[in-house]
Design a protein around this nucleic acid. Sequence first.
DNA 1: CCCGTGCCCTGGCGGC
DNA 2: TGCCGCCAGGGCACGG
Length: 265
Amino acid sequence: MPELPEVRIVSKFLNKEAKGQTITNIDVRYKRMLPEETKEKLIGQKINNIKTHGKYIIFELTDYDLISHLRMEGKYYVRSNANFNKHDHIIFYLTDKILTYNDVRKFGTFDLRDKEETFKVKPLVKVADEPFDIDPDKFYEEIKNRNVPLKSLLLNQHIIAGLGNIYADEVLFLTKLHPFKKGNTTTKEQAKLLVLNSIDVLNRAIKKGGTTLYSFKSDDEVGYFALDLLVHTRYNEPCKKCGTLIDKMKIGGRTSYYCKTCQRM
DNA sequence: CCCGTGCCCTGGCGGC
DNA sequence: TGCCGCCAGGGCACGG
């Protein structure tokens, strides 16, 4: 599931492939994903730039911003010809190439906004700063009265933007804090470390992605990548720091992996 | 405001 | 082999 680093790589890919191109037509194969009126507005728009905020991708068009969220399995492909995949739900015909949005789970979203509204209405209005930009003191203020597990707070994009289930587990392990520890028991220093470790994890993932980037297959495809994960998905495997078998628990409906020896409440 | 739950969706997997 | 049920997950609506 793409988190901030992967989303940035996708954005880089899109800038390489689609920047400067005009949307000449759109084939919406899964109607719920893009309303007809949105489609009509998009046709004729030029893609001037693609940027990101947290896990959101923002296509800057002539007159609008198109906000794309990949959720778990959204992917963009440049199709060299018309060999579409059954999970290609939206097909953008650009000036001289075909860009498809592919999403097995159909969870991805598209929102078209007037440019001046982009950050004033949903889905972006309440989205917080990315860890790189967040003020640790402000982050502490956001969590210090919350009787909510740190895992849920790190995943809350209104508090800190860009972390998903994988990297949130890694951040908590690096900070030596239990995922179920509550925000209102967390010290200012621990909060600051959570921000610093978030930056560290994301930066390392971005760097790693930068090296494995464009590991394209037959079609142009963005290859996803993973850090050498310390805890996530390592259930019953020995902790790389202390050897204790990694445990897991459900928090807010999300599976959380952690070391019960290294990570304290 | 705060917090928990369920929903959206499909492929993969365990169980029988 | 085949079918059934369940799980995975990001964000949001909704209810207490």
